[in-house]
């Protein structure tokens, strides 16, 4: 029974990833790629059930699309499964990152924020503040208006997702584990203490998104008084990779990336780990947190896709 539910939900997830209708034959191919071997006929049977539940609907002979109820179902069903989904979605982005810091070319992962057009000026000024204070993950962002995901009357903003760092490490043969999203206290311009941590492997909602919407940041105060609370990530790499990681960080910094805050076996008030190097870095979500604090009606998809690095830098 549970195994069956897993298949239903996987079909819904595939449809969610596609903006155009998908036919039963194509669905059974994609299902097979994901480890679910089903005949076309079986897929038809599942689809009929999903139609009856009101989760999918037919678009002529082109295939099925998700209904609003179907989209909601992918956000609600299989809670245990979705705990792992937050990180596996980011890991996919890391894997698809082809950025080479030596040549400053290739693709990086990005977050996509949507903001009402009448707040464009405000959001640009609050984003620029974060860049100036060097507490974003990267020194630039890109405004997009011709994107199917951006509703009319709104603008989209792409910021580089810090998972791009994991992608660069992995392409250089370094295993890296995204461990926590946290709230970091800063005093006199110096990061001092992690106030809270949420592990990426223990939640169905992105840790940093939780902190932003719970109003638990104070970036605005931080930018004005050099004391406040920002968002940071903690990742871990093997000790033997330390030298190579440092080299990569130096070349990434030359491309405009702003990290790390600290790295080592003992980082700030994190539990010391003799076998792993922790890397603490500011998150690109600090842009979003600052905007939210200052009244911008902003919604953000973390890890929305991959894009050519040059497209984000061109904004300057």
């Amino acid at each position: 029974m549970i195994r069956t539910e897993r298949k239903y939900i996987e079909i819904l997830r595939i449809l969610k990833d596609h903006s155009e209708p998908v036919g039963a034959k194509r669905l059974s191919e994609i299902m097979a790629e994901r480890g679910f071997i089903l005949t076309d006929r079986a897929v038809q049977y599942y689809l009929q059930y999903l139609d009856e539940m009101g989760f999918t609907e037919k678009v002529g002979n082109f295939g099925r699309i998700l209904t609003a109820a179907g989209i909601a179902e992918t956000n609600y069903a299989l809670v245990g499964d979705r705990i792992g989904f937050i990180i596996s979605k980011l890991e996919r982005l890391a894997f698809r990152t082809t950025f080479d810091p030596e040549t400053a070319t290739g693709d990086v992962g990005y977050n996509l924020s949507i903001v009402p057009k009448d707040q464009e000026e405000l959001v640009i000024s609050v984003f620029d503040e974060v860049i100036k204070a060097e507490c974003g993950f990267f020194c630039s962002y890109r405004i997009v208006d011709h994107d199917p995901r951006v509703p009319s009357g709104s603008i989209g903003i792409m910021t580089i997702c810090s998972i791009s760092m994991d992608g660069v490490f992995q392409r250089n043969g370094i295993p890296v584990k995204m461990a926590y999203g946290g709230r970091l206290s800063i005093e006199n311009g110096t990061p001092t203490t992690f106030l809270d941590l949420i592990g990426y492997r223990g939640t169905t909602i992105d840790p940093l998104q939780l902190f932003v919407s719970a109003g638990l940041t104070s970036i605005r105060t931080l930018l004005r008084t050099k004391a406040g609370i920002g968002l940071a990530n903690v990742r871990e790499v093997p000790c033997t990779a330390e030298g190579r990681v440092k080299e990569l960080i130096i070349s990434m910094r030359k491309c405009g990336f702003v990290f790390p805050i600290q790295m080592g076996n003992t980082v700030l008030n994190l539990q010391p780990n003799p076998h792993r190097i922790s890397i603490a870095s500011f998150s690109g979500m600090n842009f979003v947190a600052n905007a939210t604090e200052q009244g911008v009606r902003i919604t953000t998809e973390i890890g929305a896709g991959n894009i050519r690095f040059s497209k984000i830098v061109d904004m300057e």
Binding site: N75, Y76, A77, V79, G80, R82, I83, D196, L197, I198, G199, R201, G202, T203, T204, I205, L210, F211, S213, A214, G215, L216
Partner: peptide, 22 residues
């Protein structure tokens, strides 16, 4: 069913305290 979950051993802030504002 549960539609969202935060595991205690992975968080230092009470899950319900952050979920209430989502």
């Amino acid at each position: 069913r549960f539609i969202h979950m935060i595991l205690y051993e992975h968080t230092t802030i009470d899950p319900l305290q952050v979920l209430i504002s989502q």
